[in-house]
């Protein structure tokens, strides 16, 4: 088993980060292009704790190294991950646990990501992944598979941070524009433009 871990600080509030997180893989993110689809499978709010639990299916397309492909007999470019996330609005945490669905008889990848506030304007991102090659046979091959995936995680983490920064910036702009629009249209709907402009 190999472990990959990483942490980052984003200069945005936890509320902004946890909202933008839902569209981390939208076209605003031009870095994490290996994620080709994100589907929500289930979503519920625990009435006691207020925790929002969401299951998403993440579809990735990223070419595997040739030596691994030849070992597996070809096509392994598309893979799926089940991400289960828990938003705790009282503790202000987002915890996301992901496991690979594809190739689960060969490799076990368990990733945990937590977003929590550092202060009112900054959010901490902590990521850790446990990678275990399960195939029987040579230790050397298992090691190579694990090393390849750790390397992949490292590359994707750098791109992920850059891509998410772009999403956060666009998200902030979009929300500001929406607030502005609401501010402009609200007085008209109540038919009281003069009072609004006077205040």
């Amino acid at each position: 088993m190999k472990v990959f871990s990483n942490s980052e600080t984003f200069n945005y509030s936890w509320e902004e980060v946890s909202t933008a997180n839902w569209r981390k893989y939208c076209p605003w993110n031009q870095k994490s292009t290996h994620v080709v689809a994100v589907d929500t499978l289930s979503r519920s709010v625990d009435p006691e704790t207020g925790i929002l639990r969401t299951e998403r299916l993440i579809t990735c397309r990223q070419s595997a190294p040739d030596w691994l492909k030849s070992l597996m007999g070809g096509c392994m470019d598309e893979s799926q991950v089940l991400e289960t996330s828990y938003v705790d609005p009282r503790q202000k945490t987002v915890t996301m646990v992901s496991a690979n669905l594809t190739w689960s008889n060969l490799i076990n990848v368990q990733e945990t990501v937590v977003y929590r506030p550092l202060n009112e304007h900054q959010t901490r991102f902590e990521q850790s992944a446990k990678i275990t090659a399960l195939c029987g046979g040579w230790q050397r091959i298992r090691n190579s598979i694990e090393d390849t995936l750790v390397k992949r995680f490292r590359e994707n983490a750098v791109k992920g941070k850059e891509g998410f920064e772009a999403v956060l910036a666009m998200s902030r702009r979009a929300f500001a524009e929406e607030r502005e629009r609401e501010r402009m249209t609200l007085p008209r709907t109540t038919g009281d433009i003069r009072m609004a402009s006077a205040s």
């Binding site: 509320e15 994620v35 994100v38 929300f175």
Partner: peptide, 30 residues
Amino acid sequence: MSQSLAKECNEVKERYDTCFLKWYSEKYLR
């Protein structure tokens, strides 16, 4: 928003994602 695994679901997924995001930011977080 991101794409769906199934192209035929893209349109309804987009509408749902937009609805959810609004609910999440304007109601749930508050």
